[in-house]
Lab assay of single mutants.
Amino acid sequence: GEDLPLPPGWSVDWTMRGRKYYIDHNTNTTHWSHPLESGPSSG
């Protein structure tokens, strides 16, 4: 998808195989999909 801006506290990194993933430092979790690309989340 597009390179959307990341929310505060997020960063992007790549695996050893070159796969892009996103790090949420607020909750110390990692995600394969961009936080703003996922569907609407409630709460």
Rank of each mutant, 00 (worst) to 15 (best):
G1R: 11
G1S: 13
G1W: 10
E2P: 11
E2Y: 10
E2L: 10
D3N: 10
D3Y: 09
D3S: 10
L4S: 09
L4A: 10
L4P: 15
P5Y: 08
P5H: 09
L6K: 06
P7V: 00
P7K: 00
P8E: 09
P8H: 07
G9S: 03
S11H: 05
S11Q: 06
S11M: 06
S11D: 07
S11E: 09
S11C: 15
V12N: 01
V12G: 04
D13V: 09
D13C: 15
D13M: 14
D13E: 15
W14N: 05
W14T: 09
T15M: 02
T15A: 03
T15H: 04
T15L: 03
M16K: 15
M16H: 14
R17S: 15
R17W: 15
R17H: 15
R17Y: 15
G18W: 06
G18R: 04
G18F: 05
R19K: 10
R19I: 14
K20D: 00
K20I: 09
Y21G: 01
Y21N: 00
Y22P: 00
Y22W: 08
Y22M: 00
I23A: 00
I23Y: 08
I23Q: 03
I23G: 00
I23C: 03
D24K: 03
N26P: 02
N26C: 05
N26H: 07
T27L: 04
T27K: 05
T27P: 01
N28P: 02
N28D: 07
T30S: 08
T30Q: 08
T30Y: 15
T30N: 08
T30R: 14
T30I: 15
T30G: 04
H31E: 00
H31W: 11
W32D: 04
W32A: 03
W32Q: 03
S33D: 09
S33I: 14
H34R: 06
H34F: 06
H34I: 06
H34M: 05
P35V: 02
P35Y: 02
P35Q: 03
L36Y: 09
L36P: 05
L36A: 09
E37N: 10
E37W: 13
E37Q: 13
E37F: 11
E37Y: 12
S38R: 12
S38I: 12
S38F: 11
G39V: 13
P40L: 12
P40H: 11
P40T: 12
P40M: 13
P40S: 13
P40E: 10
S41W: 08
S41G: 13
S42Y: 14
G43Q: 12
G43H: 11
